[in-house]
């Protein structure tokens, strides 16, 4: 059995070599304790979030944390038997129409998943109608819209309008995030909240899901 406390610390410190070595050891020994390992990784990701909040980590660290978490999941996935960390709920996430940027969205996704949120990722350049359709089909009440280009603002607005048109606006909470987003743009778009940083975005989504 591996040292889960050490795994958690290594994940928080983004110590790639230690995380990989510990998880590979666990798998080599038959995979027992994979659920605990996953929980330790998720706790480590919470540390990453805390260090971001305190200003010690920044975006590059979050990108790397997402990469490391994905790598960790790939190693232990075959041995995972139950959902660890609890399921907080399900939400939808995408980069809006006309915008191909996915880094910000992926950071938010990794942090949400590490926090036990099931994320339906619709990808990039997603049309308003496709977002509404997916929300309906999946029964999702929380929507995260991401974008980097200034034109994403208009797509975000069009998405909010599409929810109104479908008669679903009051059923969903919509968060917008990404470089061009501001308080003024949030009002213009008609979203419920906005965020420039992933950690705050995750916090808002989790509060809505709870």
């Amino acid at each position: 059995m591996i040292d889960f406390e050490r795994l958690k610390t290594a994940m928080g410190e983004l110590d790639n070599d230690t995380v990989v070595a510990l998880l590979e050891k666990l798998m080599a020994e038959g995979g027992e304790g994979a659920d605990q390992a996953l929980a330790a990784c998720q706790e480590g990701m919470n540390t990453v979030g805390d260090l971001f909040e305190s200003g010690e980590y920044f975006v590059a660290d979050l990108i790397f944390a997402g990469e490391l978490m994905t790598q960790a999941m790939d190693i232990i996935k075959p041995a995972i038997v139950a959902s660890a960390g609890g399921n907080v709920g399900k939400m939808l996430l995408c980069t809006v129409q006309g915008d191909m940027h996915d880094i910000g969205k992926n950071i938010v996704k990794a942090m949400l998943e590490a926090g036990g949120v099931e994320v339906v990722d619709l990808g990039i350049d997603v049309a308003p109608e496709a977002i509404v359709k997916a929300a309906k089909e999946q029964g999702v009440k929380v929507i995260g819209l991401s974008g980097v280009l200034t034109l994403a603002i208009d797509s975000m607005k069009a998405t909010v309008e599409a929810f109104k048109k479908a008669g679903l606006r009051d059923d969903v909470k919509i968060l917008i995030g990404g470089a061009p987003v501001t308080g003024e743009y949030c009002s213009y778009v008609g979203a419920d909240a906005w965020s420039l940083n992933a950690a705050k975005g995750v916090e808002i989504c989790r509060s809505w899901l709870n």
């Binding site: 983004l14 790639n16 975006v59 590059a60 660290d61 990108i63 790397f64 990469e67 880094i103």
Partner: peptide
């Protein structure tokens, strides 16, 4: 790129 830079600075 952004992802490569973030990764290289760590790895």
């Amino acid at each position: 790129g952004i992802k490569g830079t973030a990764s290289d600075m760590r790895r």
